[in-house]
Amino acid sequence: MSYSTKVLDHYENPRNVGSFAQDEEGIATGMVGAPACGDVMKLQLKVNKDGIIEDAKFKTYGCGSAIASSSLVTEWVKGKTLDQALDIKNTHIAEELALPPVKIHCSVLAEDAIKAAVADYKSKHGTTVETNMCSSH
């Protein structure tokens, strides 16, 4: 199978590879896995006190498409709010990277990783964010 140039670019020069320390302030972690291919993906978001994603890092063990999908997502989420990040759908990722049908599940995995990270953030910080916002008014 031939990869698109965008997939190859992200695969050869992946953006934002790595991890944040789990105990760092405002870190949310989403981990997902695809049984079909055994790929695992970890996406971490660094969220500032205004609820904006300042930075993102990923670690993916999988094929070129899975790595490219997660690399692209780390670029796309930066500067977004958590709710805006949730608007990123697998179809956008697949379209941007020109993924063939057999690799669509890689983009689904990346979308699921965003959802998992946001859910992690909300379960850890959700209530405190709201409290802070209320008290500042």
Binding site: M31, V32, G33, A34, P35, V40, K42, K59, Y61, V108, L109, D112
Partner: peptide
């Protein structure tokens, strides 16, 4: 894709 977090951590 809803694998348990502990399992995914082990996989990593």
């Amino acid at each position: 894709t809803a694998m348990s977090p502990a399992f995914l951590m082990e996989q990593m």
